[in-house]
Design a protein around this nucleic acid. Structure first.
Lengths: 124, 124, 124, 124
DNA sequence: GTGGTCTAGACCACC
DNA sequence: GTGGTCTAGACCACA
């Protein structure tokens, strides 16, 4: 897997996993690949996967059964979506709107870009 | 001046200057404060300001007259706005739209948040 | 390593590396010595090497893998040669020819100097 | 007058004067503009012109009559040409030839570029 | 281990 | 006065 270089890899891994949960590629109760498996698959240092898992555990998205592995929490999807929605509305959107003002972009323009986006296929 | 901790100071300085140019607080042809003056004002090491200025010079936003100081380029405002607009439309917006889909937020919701944002005063 | 005094050290380091790439002493995909290793080898401050590497990265000659080190880009050699050839033909040669006219040196003279150069061994 | 930023202005002034002498725009015995006049004409600090003149004086290209001004030396043109020719042949040409080898440019190519240069007008 | 940032302080060339 | 470079040393995040 290719990672970009402007964010820590362990965060990028976390994001991928969170997105997979939202998209229901992986679901509550599923067992995560072991740290080593994941490390090999992603061509990444196991420490890095470890850190990604640790963070997800701290967010109560996954949990660890000693000697067995990591599993997806009940309600993982719901709590991720709630968390990210909050972040999105309270942090990202205001920043976007601030920049729109600075760049002289109004809401009609935004609508136009949204239409273009949908036309082009939207979800990649 | 207070800087937040998740971005390098020299980048934050660059951003402030770029925004000041967009807002026309400083204009084409103006002389920038000298590196040392700026360093004192921002309570920062001169090297840090130096790096911020060097980056802006590489972006052709400011230029240097030997032994005299840094000056704002002709067209600085235009080129900054063009650059940032491009970044905004090609990078940030698609990411936002992607996330909207993921989080099940539709355009009507976006409109609603925008109205709230405007009501609250918009520009901080 | 000895540096001359009329150019910044970090630029001289960059030039040495670029030439090593052209001469294929180092090749695409190779890992560069770490900043600290290089600093010790060149008897120079790590910050200086850092700056040299940063510039090469900006030119897309080397790139960074987080926590691992710097590596030579694919196409590094090609892009360097293209770039330098352009510089040579569009900037240096015309300056040389201008000066030849000023100094009353014609092309036959140039040929003579070239022959002498080859006779003396050419490449140092 | 516009100066480029990669060489000290006082050196650029010196070069212009030397070239004017070679081109016989100014000749042996002529009086140079006073430092102040020159500074105003070039939109430059008088100190800068002063330094340029000082260097030319050290090279025995101009000399100073106290209270009267600076004058072009006898033999100024000859000595400049001799000096620059030496520099050109011993320093610049070998560097050019070195780079040609590195960039895989042979003498036939050089000939071709020279022909193109002459075709395009040569002396600017 | 890796690189990135920042500080403090020095020295220098230039205007 | 201006900026540019370099050093020494520190601290941090990341793999």
């Amino acid at each position: 897997m290719k990672f970009h270089n402007n964010k820590p890899i362990y965060q990028q891994i976390g994001t991928v996993i969170r997105n997979d949960i939202i998209k229901e590629k992986i679901k509550s109760g599923d067992r995560m690949p072991s740290i080593r498996e994941m490390a090999i698959e992603l061509e990444v240092n196991p420490n890095t996967v470890n850190r990604a898992y640790a963070d997800l555990q701290a967010e109560e998205i996954i949990f660890n059964k000693r000697g067995i592995g990591y599993f997806i929490h009940e309600k993982a999807k719901e709590s991720i979506m709630e968390e990210e929605k909050k972040e999105f509305i309270e942090k990202k959107l205001p920043a976007i709107f601030d920049q729109m003002i600075l760049l002289n972009i109004n809401f009609e323009d935004l609508q136009k870009y949204y239409d273009e986006y949908k036309a082009k296929g939207g979800k990649k």
